[in-house]
């Protein structure tokens, strides 16, 4: 049951190129532009990586997660709007199965996207300091990030029931990503207010966790905060989404 729903979720994403292309293409484009445009930044004193490409390759992982959030939320909101969810409410399917199926489909796309990011990255010269096990850890991160963001997206979609509302979260995408340590390490930010905002932005810690695997190796001080955020975020987002799903599937 859940796997059927996951297949549906994956298919409906894959069959709308407008949903797939941005996940793969957009992050890679920004990596290409930023690694060329900001390549000189790797010469800043105290810059942690040898090449800016090594430094920036962590960012697409977050972008993939943010797209997962939009896709999961939009899909579920569309299901509510079209009445599909009401039809499901008449079957014995459980809300959690539906939710898991939807999230699993979106997370699968996150994993595929991460493989593409890394492959392109390797071809362009990225080296992962944490070795082959580090590459596996990166893919696990991609799945965990997809899981957390899609459960948050599912919550928004189920709660609002409106695809437009979910799409309205698109600017948040930029806020979270741009006001973080995505483009420069926090200790190289000259503007104190920006460093403060980036320090409060959980996305900074996710990026720094992923980045540490590529740039420094196994660094518990960078990995634990990222893992903690993912666990807490997934639990809270998942619980909220499950609750919203129950509210939507009320049957007598």
């Amino acid at each position: 049951m859940t796997s059927d729903l996951a297949r549906r979720a994956l298919l409906r994403t894959l069959r709308q190129p407008a949903n797939v292309v941005p996940v793969i293409f957009f992050p890679m484009l920004l990596v290409a532009i930023n690694s060329a445009g900001l390549d000189a930044a790797s010469e800043l004193p105290g810059f942690p990586a040898d090449s800016y490409l090594d430094f920036i390759i962590a960012v697409p992982f977050i972008q993939g997660g943010l797209f997962a959030m939009l896709n999961a939320g939009t899909d579920l909101a569309t299901d509510i709007e079209s009445g599909f969810l009401r039809r499901l409410a008449l079957t014995p399917v459980r809300g959690t199965s539906l939710l898991l199926g939807q999230v699993a489909g979106v997370v699968a796309l996150s994993l595929v996207a991460a493989v593409v990011y890394l492959t392109v990255g390797f071809i362009a010269g990225v080296t992962v300091a944490a070795g082959p096990a580090g590459v596996v850890a990166l893919l696990v991160f991609a799945v965990a990030i997809g899981l957390m963001f899609s459960s948050i997206g599912a919550f928004v979609g189920l709660r609002s029931g409106s695809p437009q509302t979910v799409q309205g979260f698109f600017p948040l995408f930029f806020v979270l990503l741009f006001l973080s340590s995505a483009n420069l390490p926090r200790d190289l930010m000259e503007q104190d207010w920006f460093a403060t905002v980036a320090g409060l932005n959980p996305v900074s810690y996710l990026i720094e966790g992923i980045r540490s695997l590529v740039v420094t190796g196994w660094d518990p001080a960078a990995l634990w905060p990222a893992i903690a955020i993912l666990v807490v975020g997934t639990l809270v987002g998942g619980a909220a989404a499950a609750h919203a799903m129950r509210t939507n599937l009320v049957r007598t």
């Binding site: 000189a40 930044a41 010469e43 806020v175 006001l179 483009n183 420069l184 000259e190 503007q191 920006f194």
Partner: peptide
Amino acid sequence: MFYVAFAGGLSSVGDLP
């Protein structure tokens, strides 16, 4: 958004040789 992120976050890039 771009202005805040780039002008605020990347200002040390202006110090590059």
